[in-house]
């Protein structure tokens, strides 16, 4: 086995009632690798992410993190989830807490770290995303882009091994998309392992080490970005890219 493999998704299958949303999906993510998942809406990309941190249960297959299978009945998700940071599409900050309280909650209550230490970390991270002056603000006082940057910091402070991004810019006004994507690019440079679900094609092309194309609950193609965008290997990915008008002619 390759020691570099951080996350291994092995033929997972997921049903919503009768409807099969994931069909034997397999994917490996290496340490430091940036995987971007593309595909039409409803193809199962968000569900795939949600299965990784146990927000959805699976009916077949397995997922391992660091070589340990995490999709078992007795999985202690509160421990696993500390290693998996997740940022959602909708603004999910806790509205009754300030930015700093939002960030400190989990390190204090879950990891039981010293408040002084994590506060320093939190302020450093806030500075890194350009929001140090917002530390005492409530989420309702922030723009959508600022909220998503705080949500990223809130996940980062747990020192996760991998970050999952579920269409984090989809609900943003166009002028705010950049500030969030910049933070993600910055993370990528720092070597963070990431799985990103997005509709931002340019961004996907720029950041990805590996593109995963999904359709109808299946992983149809896994390619390097330049191959995927210039010379898609399957008819379905070709059709998808045509819709986005993104097959570049050389």
């Amino acid at each position: 086995m390759d020691n570099n493999i951080l996350l291994k998704i092995d033929e997972i299958t997921k049903f919503f009632g009768e409807h099969k949303v994931l069909n034997k999906a397999s994917l490996t993510v290496e340490k430091g690798e940036i995987v971007v998942v593309l595909g039409p809406s409803g193809c199962g990309k968000s569900t795939l992410l949600r299965c990784i941190n146990g927000l959805e249960d699976i009916q077949g297959g397995s997922i391992s993190l660091d070589g340990n299978v995490i999709t078992q009945k007795d999985t202690r998700w509160t421990e696993i989830r500390q290693k998996i940071g997740m940022v959602f599409q909708s603004y999910d900050l806790f509205p009754h807490m300030t930015v700093l309280q939002n960030i400190l909650l989990a390190p204090l209550r879950v990891q039981h770290r010293k408040k002084q230490d994590i506060k320093e970390d939190a302020l450093k991270l806030l500075e890194r995303v350009g929001l140090l002056d917002k530390k005492a603000s409530y989420p309702s006082e922030l723009s959508g882009g600022q909220r998503q940057r705080v949500a990223i910091v809130r996940a980062l402070i747990m020192n996760p091994e991998i970050m999952l991004f579920d269409e984090v810019t989809a609900a943003l006004d166009p002028e705010m998309v950049h500030e969030v994507l910049d933070v993600m690019l910055d993370l990528a440079k720092a070597g963070m392992t990431m799985v990103i679900v997005t509709h931002e094609m340019q961004f996907a092309k720029a950041i990805a080490d590996k593109i995963v194309f999904m359709d109808n609950g299946e992983i149809v193609e896994i390619s390097k970005p330049d191959i995927f965008f210039n010379n898609p290997q399957t008819e379905r990915s070709q059709r998808f890219l045509n819709k986005f008008n993104y097959t570049e002619k050389r």
């Binding site: 941190n53 927000l55 998700w77 509160t78 421990e79 989830r81 500390q82 998996i84 940071g85 997740m86 959602f88 909708s90 999910d92 900050l93 806790f94 909650l105 989990a106 209550r109 879950v110 990891q111 949500a151 809130r154 996940a155 747990m158």
Partner: peptide, 21 residues
């Protein structure tokens, strides 16, 4: 539901999610 899910994904237990969020 998103409030519960984002709190769970930070590693909080169901009880903590109820109590703090």
């Amino acid at each position: 539901k998103i409030q519960t899910e984002s709190a769970l994904s930070l590693g909080l237990s169901r009880f903590q999610v109820m109590l703090y969020i």
